[in-house]
């Protein structure tokens, strides 16, 4: 089955084995979605069920439930299968906070980093 599907949908073949698995999707613009992959097409568009958006900031993280998602293939930068054990271990070390707070902190830090990158003296 995988080999025939590989030939059938060029360019998105490796996604097949993630179907019905809990996956992490990195979307352009620093958004990370976690959900169950239900479907995909030849453009790499995907459907995620029970999607959760997650943000991290230093020693804390936050989650927001987002429901059913269709993510356009063009904006996906990477995706990977979530290992529940690793996920649990990572979260055990971190503090869970309100989504808006963590998002604001993370945005502020990213902004500060990009300001620094734009203003730093030229290397040459």
């Amino acid at each position: 089955m995988p080999s025939t599907m590989d030939a059938f949908i060029p360019g998105s073949a490796p996604i097949l084995e993630y179907i019905d698995n809990r996956i992490m999707v990195a979307v352009r613009g620093n958004t990370y979605l976690y959900g169950t992959l239900r479907s995909y097409d030849q453009y790499g568009n995907i459907v995620l069920q029970d999607t959760v958006e997650r943000v991290y900031y230093r020693q804390s993280y936050a989650e927001a439930a987002r429901g059913l998602f269709l993510v356009r293939g063009q904006v996906i930068s990477s995706m990977g299968r979530v290992d529940p054990q690793r996920e649990h271990d990572t979260h055990a070390r971190l503090q869970c906070r309100a989504f808006a707070d963590v998002e604001a902190d993370a945005d502020a830090e990213r902004q500060a980093l990009s300001d620094y990158a734009q203003n730093k003296p030229c290397a040459v």
Binding site: M24, G80, R81, D83, R86
Partner: peptide, 9 residues
């Protein structure tokens, strides 16, 4: 964000 994954595309 990517620490919980072992394989990725």
């Amino acid at each position: 964000q990517m620490q919980s994954t072992t394989t990725c595309f």
